[in-house]
Nucleic acid binder design. Structure first.
Lengths: 339, 339
DNA sequence: GCGCGACTATACAGCGCTGTAAATCTGAGA
DNA sequence: TCTCAGATTTACAGCGCTGTATAGTCGCGC
């Protein structure tokens, strides 16, 4: 029932009485094949149940039709959703997507470029967290590469991101329009800030200043762990310590979810006492109580543009690093409603 | 700066003045190589920056050291977390993991077995949703395969799952011990039930009967969409329609999250008015308000056992299908606390 | 000083497929 | 009927690597 050995191109060729190359041409839809020949070969293919061996093809062509998407952690909903979108978009372009978790560590991020993808992938899209693009470029092999996320210190590589500063400013402005005066920021790293956090904090500050509010470092709440529990613990501790806020911009939705819990458990009502804005607009933020207003990056556009750039590089484009900005939105829901 | 052409094994061999095979032996840690030779070759490798080309190796050995994990949808937190665990566990065994979404559709599930993995992966772990293992076996190629999820109609293939019936029964028992009498079930499919739903409903029913409660079909709430919003809509409609419950077992955590919102929005308190139990114990259920009591499958064990079985098949084991059950737990939190 | 066994290193073929260039075929015009 | 351009088909080499079989090397005991 299970064939001992896979059917090979040569088997089909022999069976159909033609050359191997002709079978190859038929299988790959090469145009200059006569209809009669095409039919004959297709019959043989069907009869023997032939399926091309991707390894052999890949070795011969030097292409694998696979791309890699590397990001910190699949368990963070944003990345899971991003991966989903990337998989769709790259499938639509005829590429399979290999998903790779870096753990958000320097080693993990370097490893992606240095070791892992060697020769099994045609290109890599990397969303770094610990390292910046400029640091990572040194480790780059000859595989085409596109960075996700806006590195403030632009590198020579292609890069796609939303405008974090503008988005954060916009989110703060939304809170200001709700009459909030003591607007905090939750969720950046306790250690050195990732560049994403840095940018969002920049925008947060800009938003405050634009509204004539004073930037107050005591309203910044870092978290030790990048998940919801870490955010809950951090904000909880700060609140218990006397922190007073009436608005909160979160670095990401996980922080917002943790914030919700920290606030509600302490009897603070959202949005009446504290209005909360998350970031990424992951699907679950529509189902919390209250649902969470969140900054929504255009992930489809993000994926499309990133793959555009990457495929151009794969096709041999040699050009300086290009930096593309894609759109975003503030998705208004219950945690920070319309004024 | 970027080498025009990758360094090949032959380049290293020439550079070190040895044969290609010797370099290969060094690179792959073949034992019978003299220390001096090993050192010389390693120096050449380092000097030229050689990295083995996985495509070539894969063609020569017939192995790719990659496995595929296929499941319905990455956006569902359970699968994202499962994928994360599988990736770790398989990395620990020296395999990379290719993640594949089937969309939960018959075509998607068939495609995984039939087209997609042809020759690029050494084995496949498939978590079906639309089709049962027995249906899928027909499409199986010669790639080793392990099913995830307990198909009530055991197939000839290997299978790993938790005991869904026992777990559901246990969850219901927990609700009963909280004094709940009208315990509903939320989240199975509106169309034909998946076998997972079927089993969990079986256990739900068994739990009720064991407690001497009557099984009442009007307490079953199906959802059209397999996400939280779908569950919220379904339960909301049922409640508005007069459904009265004081306990609720959900097919998965997304259903529980949707349920929370449907209940709270209608002024019902969880757990006082309605106690809720979710399923999968995804991390986010610790951060909702209230946090969600949930059935926790032992995913690490699930992944380990599945890979054990798969690797044995890859090593050529020829045996009838084996069916492994891994452990689970009811993780008690606020939505259905200890009595 | 020689022969043998145990290790090491090498040569060669080939994994399954595709690119290139050359061979073959077709049919129209002379 | 013959020639030649254009369209199909084929032969061959080789992508980068590893398994097998073979050759080479060394040390040791007689």
């Amino acid at each position: 029932m299970i064939p001992v050995k896979r059917v090979t191109l040569q088997d089909v060729a022999t069976h159909a009485g033609v050359s191997m190359k002709t079978v190859s041409n038929v299988v790959r839809d090469y145009p200059h094949v006569s209809p009669a020949m095409r039919e004959r070969v297709q019959a043989a293919v069907a009869e023997l149940g032939y399926r091309p061996n991707l390894r052999g093809r890949s070795l011969a062509t030097g292409r694998s039709n696979m791309l890699a998407l590397a990001f910190p952690d699949l368990r963070r909903p944003y990345f899971a959703e991003l991966a989903h979108v990337f998989a769709r978009v790259s499938a639509a372009r005829g590429y399979r997507l290999l998903l790779e978790e870096t753990g958000g560590t320097p080693d993990g991020e370097r490893a992606v470029l240095r070791d892992r993808e060697a020769g099994i992938v045609d290109g890599v899209v990397l969303h770094p967290q610990a390292l910046r693009a400029t640091d990572l470029e040194a480790y780059r092999e000859d595989t085409p590469l596109v960075f996700l996320g806006e590195d403030p210190q632009p590198s020579g590589a292609d890069q796609v991101a939303i405008d974090n500063v503008a988005a954060a400013e916009q989110a703060v402005t939304h809170l200001v329009r709700l009459g909030r005066r003591r607007i905090g920021f939750l969720g950046h790293e306790t250690g050195p800030w990732s560049f994403t956090s840095t940018l969002r904090l920049d925008g947060y500050r800009a938003g405050l200043e634009r509204a004539g509010h004073r930037f107050d470092e005591s309203l910044l709440v870092a978290r030790a762990e990048g998940d919801a529990l870490g955010a809950e613990a951090a904000l909880g501790a700060a609140l218990d310590d006397g922190l007073e806020i009436d608005g909160l911009l979160c670095r990401d939705d996980l922080a917002a979810i943790g914030a919700l819990r920290a606030l509600l458990v302490r009897g603070l009502h959202v949005p009446c006492d504290v209005a909360v804005v998350g970031w990424d607009a992951t699907v679950l933020t529509a189902s919390t109580v209250p649902s969470i207003t969140s900054v929504a990056p255009d992930t489809v556009e993000l994926a499309s543009r990133a793959l555009d750039l990457l495929l151009e590089r794969i096709d041999g484009l040699d050009a300086p690093g290009r930096h593309v900005t894609v759109g975003h939105d503030v998705l208004v829901r219950e945690s920070a409603p319309e004024p």
